[in-house]
């Protein structure tokens, strides 16, 4: 672990030496370094607020934007701040169906985050498993796997996702599938590189001498030591998945209109924008931008903290 350079070399763990824990744990050290950057701290706070807002959207949103019975066509295309026929205020305006944009954004963030996080995690699971196997097995298995990885990485992610979606059609499950397939190779490449370096270390040899099972060596010995780089890539790929999902939905090949995401909201408002009704596209877009930027900034700081060599 990268924290080891801070600790004076000793054969006994810090706790035993000093009686009480004078030495901050690696976790605390990590957070202390992380919070050293005000921008990253702010991003993390924003991110937490956004996740909470998305999870509790039904409680916070002034209306359920997809309950047709509460929508009134008379309220359509109201500018921000105007009042609806039921006396509710459209904070960020309303769209062509009389839907409150603020509520729609809250619900849209749910879909966007769900798609981004689940495809990030699944992609990581798939990539990590394949990458670890490649590094551990070596030989022909590794060659074949890495050729596929290289091949896939030579094609732009968006093209792979577009083609997959044109094959399987629209839907939340389908877009997650497309994003996982489009992104797993990044994780596979990273974990293989990290695992190759770890494998040569003595603790792996010791585990082999103990005749531990392959799966156990891979997943409970090598994998934890590859986590720093995986966490970084995981965050950045989640941001990129959210951006890709929005792009694909905007292009009309991602999510069906029944599954509102930020990309769809932006896409729906796009036509009205030409006539000066900017709020339908602009506000969902800003929400999307804040999410992606917050994740990227958090990821960037995690990378800086975990990899002191990268500091300028």
């Amino acid at each position: 672990m990268s924290e080891s350079h801070r600790r004076p070399f000793s054969l006994l763990p810090g706790k035993l030496l000093s009686g009480k824990s004078a030495e901050p744990s690696p976790g605390r050290l990590f957070w202390m370094d992380f919070f050293a950057s005000p921008v990253a701290t702010l991003s993390l706070v924003v991110l937490i607020v956004i996740v909470l807002a998305a999870v509790f959207a039904p409680l916070i949103a002034p209306q359920n934007p997809y309950d047709l019975s509460v929508l009134d066509i008379m309220d359509s295309r109201q500018p921000p701040g105007s009042e609806s026929s039921t006396g509710m205020v459209f904070l960020l305006g309303s769209d062509g169906a009389g839907r409150d944009i603020f509520s729609a954004i809250l619900y849209g963030m749910r879909t966007s985050l769900l798609v981004g996080i689940s495809s990030g995690l699944l992609g990581m699971g798939m990539g990590v498993t394949i990458g670890l196997v490649a590094a551990y097995k070596g030989g022909r298995v590794e060659t074949v796997i890495m050729r596929i990885v290289d091949l896939q990485l030579s094609f732009p992610t968006i093209l792979i996702a577009l083609i997959l979606l044109s094959v399987v059609g629209k839907g939340v499950d389908k877009i997650i599938l497309a994003l996982v397939i489009a992104q797993w190779a990044y994780f596979a490449r990273a974990v293989r590189a990290a695992a190759l370096a770890e494998q040569r270390k003595e603790y792996v040899e010791a585990a082999r001498v103990l005749r531990l099972s392959h799966a156990r060596i891979l997943f409970s010995h090598i994998l934890p030591n590859c986590m720093p780089s995986l966490i970084v890539i995981g965050t950045l790929q989640t941001a990129s998945a959210i951006s890709l999902e929005a792009t694909l939905s905007f292009l009309g090949v991602g999510l069906p209109p029944t599954e509102p995401s930020l990309g769809l909201l932006i896409s729906n408002g796009f036509e009205s924008m030409m006539s000066g009704r900017y709020w339908m596209s602009l506000f969902p877009g800003i929400a999307l931008l804040i999410i992606i930027m917050a994740i990227n900034l958090v990821g960037d700081q995690v990378r800086t903290v975990l990899n002191p060599k990268g500091r300028g």
């Binding site: 941001a239 951006s243 929005a246 792009t247 905007f250 292009l251 990309g263 932006i266 796009f270 924008m273 030409m274 000066g276 900017y278 596209s281 602009l282 877009g285 999307l288 931008l289 992606i292 930027m293 990227n296 900034l297 960037d300």
Partner: peptide, 22 residues
């Protein structure tokens, strides 16, 4: 450059149209 990294292409396009064209 971090901000530019975070901007989805289609969103930049929309904002440019909104600003420079409309």
């Amino acid at each position: 450059s971090i901000v530019a990294f975070s901007l989805p292409t289609f969103w930049i396009g929309i904002v440019f149209i909104m600003l420079f064209a409309v």
